[in-house]
Computed example of a mutant assay.
Amino acid sequence: MHYDLTDLRLFVAIAELRNLTRGAERVHLAPSSASHRIRLLEESIGTPLLIREARGVKLTRAGEALLRHARQVFAQLEQMHADLSPFAKGVKGHVNLWANTHATHTFLPESLSAFLRSHPQVSITLEEHTSPEIVMAVARGEVEVGVVAESVEGAEVVFIPYRADRLVLIAPVDHPLAAQPSTAFVDVLDQPFVMLHAGSAIHTFTMNAAAALGRHLEVRIQVRSFEAVCRMVGAGVGLGMVPRSAIPDGPARAALAILELQEPWAQRDLKVCVKKREQLSGFAAALVESLTGSVQDEPPP
């Protein structure tokens, strides 16, 4: 198949406007030139993309597939431009950092702010993944630095202590559980829960913890932040499980009862994960040093 970005831009314009002439105008082409390009594009692909009608055009199934993929292509191009633009502005280095939900929503904002203030020539891409996904990506060399709460047996990586924290159960202050200092996770699985959105690392972790007990968690509502979880729980929507560090101060905290979870997995000490510290690129090494100070590496499990 032979086509270029101009062909794809033209096709997207025509498909969105459902009109060849107006699509050609959007990309600054003459209608005759646009018609010729579309005909060559259809010949190259080997199937019609548009059905010509009296008042415009409509897409064939092949045209709908091409439109979907073309939009993805242009979205990727925009992301590429966004990723490259800092270098044109004088940024000298870039670090990819993967972290679990816990770290991303609690400690990392402050830590990364401090690092970037002292390293203005560096940019960071932060992606949220589950701890096992992060450990395996580091072990495979796909990402240099991760922040995790769990290890993966046999993964050839090292862990460096970052922050100590613990998952706790939160309930409305007038809930029957509120008088208890602690609870087992299994004892609250018949209660409705407020959770972070599906796909977040802590959502996956919590659902897996329930499944390991042969139970299914009733999720009443999903939100986008730990702060929103706390506010929903305080309003009586359901129970929540959050890191202790994520519970806000002030009126929002006053509306919550905080119960210790009795499970060993509730202790969620965060660690920086790298393959080999001595093999890190310069800016990745500087980031690890900023996050952990002079703390010694821990060997893999």
Rank of each mutant, 00 (worst) to 15 (best):
A13Y: 08
L50N: 00
L10P: 01
L280N: 06
A82L: 13
R39M: 09
L291N: 01
P172K: 02
M1S: 14
E263R: 04
Q296Y: 12
F115D: 00
V143Q: 00
E16H: 09
G199V: 06
L259F: 09
A137L: 05
T60A: 05
R224T: 12
G93E: 15
T106D: 01
L97T: 02
P132H: 08
R163M: 06
F205P: 00
L112A: 07
A212I: 11
R68K: 11
Q76E: 11
A228Y: 07
G154F: 07
L196K: 02
D165P: 05
P48W: 08
L49A: 02
V173K: 13
D7Y: 10
A30I: 06
A30T: 13
S151P: 06
E133F: 11
N19K: 07
V122L: 04
M195V: 06
L259K: 01
L49Q: 01
D83K: 12
S245E: 04
V219S: 04
L29T: 10
V143I: 14
A75P: 03
P161I: 05
A82V: 14
L287F: 08
L5C: 04
A255T: 13
F185A: 01
G93R: 14
D190I: 07
G93Q: 14
R18G: 10
G240V: 02
V12F: 10
V135G: 00
H119A: 09
L20A: 04
Q222I: 05
V145E: 00
H102D: 03
T104I: 12
A255R: 15
S85L: 14
L213N: 13
G146W: 02
R224W: 13
T130R: 02
E16T: 12
L169W: 01
L41K: 01
F74H: 03
H129I: 07
V223L: 10
Q267P: 05
L8H: 09
A212C: 11
P120M: 08
V27P: 01
V288T: 04
D187L: 09
E289L: 10
